[in-house]
Design a protein around this nucleic acid. Structure first.
Lengths: 216, 216
DNA sequence: TAGATTGTTAATCGATTAACAATC
DNA sequence: TAGATTGTTAATCGATTAACAATC
């Protein structure tokens, strides 16, 4: 009746709340700036919270999830905290991926190459990366053991290209296309629906503009 | 003691849960495809849910938020439903914005122009839009009554460019830069932290890869 | 009619927030 | 020491899910 509760050797894999996971990179960015610009040694949740417009208690909870340990009265050691978050998010060893935005290497993502069906684009460069024809994709994935595919094609071709990636052995797909794609259960899909975000923004804007009018 | 509960004339502005707001465009996309490809007249929550991998009851709740009305036993009229969502999200009249991704016009966002500090890029085109020098930004915003600014600059310049936009009268900023920007309360800011999303994905990937190893 | 599906009210679940004890 | 700040346990709040009545 031990309920295989052997907490001893290996840590139970706690599920981290997604909102927390999304806030951690924000703290990270902030801490790096604080560290570089101000050379700050210690920082408190109160400070982080007021700068980032997050409640201090939430900051504390989030950092706790990332296994950060602070000192009462002093706060958290900034340098150590940066390292802790890096380790927790696995940013120590970069993962290879296929095209995306620039500036992700800092987050442990190394963009390897870009692909396109359009022959006119093949051979040109985007964000400093050569564009190859999609037919080269399977080979490339295998040879360089790429783990993440970034899907930025129109709805009509999304499933087809996802299939190509999966067949070539990709382990996760970052999907910017507006349609749901079907993949085997072992492949992870992260949907990035920018249209959804835009909706949130424009809805707020509409309400604000209306309010502005009725207040007049 | 009426609690200004005059529900009569004008609808109380209900706050729509953000998750719902994010799912609505997904339904919309899906419905349009179903309508165009299959020419389907009626559709049930059960169907939408199983196709989109969402619980039927959640679909129903979401559609209810968008003021959609269905018929017991039959489901929702697809064409009508598309129109309802369009109206609810305000996609009938497009809002002007400054550069971003392609394909947003469908979502009521019309990308007007792109700006850059780099003189070498000025005059060239991105996604079919001319790139202007940032010095032209204030004029452009005013002349064309642009409502939304899309901020895609490096962290170091984010605040500066946000200030420029605000001064020129922009009402909302879609911020893709990794830093928090300060704006007056009447300006709406939507933070689009792609690094956050990437974290969610790569965390899942790491866990999956580890699990794969230990299962071996 | 019978049964599938909507609409509505209640229960559950998880993230956020609050309260407070521990500690440097 | 006194007080700010962490760490932890409990309360709140809101979204999701369940249950069921209404209806075509």
């Amino acid at each position: 009746m031990e309920e295989n509760d052997q907490k001893g050797t290996e840590e139970r894999i706690r599920p981290i709340p997604e909102p927390t996971l999304r806030r951690l990179p924000v703290y990270y960015q902030y801490l790096k700036r604080k560290h570089e610009e101000k050379g700050l040694d210690y920082i408190s949740c109160t400070r982080i919270g007021s700068d980032l417009n997050v409640l201090p208690i939430q900051v504390r909870k989030d950092l706790q999830c990332a296994d950060a340990v602070g000192k009462p009265k002093l706060g958290y050691n900034v340098k150590e905290l940066i390292g802790t978050i890096e380790t927790f998010l696995g940013w120590n060893n970069t993962t290879e991926a296929l095209l995306g935005y620039q500036g992700f290497r800092e987050y442990g993502l190394d963009i390897i190459a870009a692909f396109d069906i359009d022959e006119k684009k093949v051979g040109t460069k985007v964000a400093g990366r050569s564009i190859f024809h999609v037919s080269k994709l399977p080979d490339m994935i295998r040879r360089m053991s790429v783990k993440i595919g970034v899907l930025t094609v129109p709805a009509a071709h999304a499933q087809e290209q996802a299939d190509t990636m999966v067949k070539a052995g990709i382990r996760a797909i970052w999907n910017f296309s507006p349609v749901k794609i079907s993949v085997p259960p072992q492949v992870i899909v992260q949907h990035e629906n920018l249209a959804s975000s835009l909706v949130v923004l424009s809805k707020k804007l509409t309400l604000a503009l209306q309010a502005g009018v009725s207040e007049r």
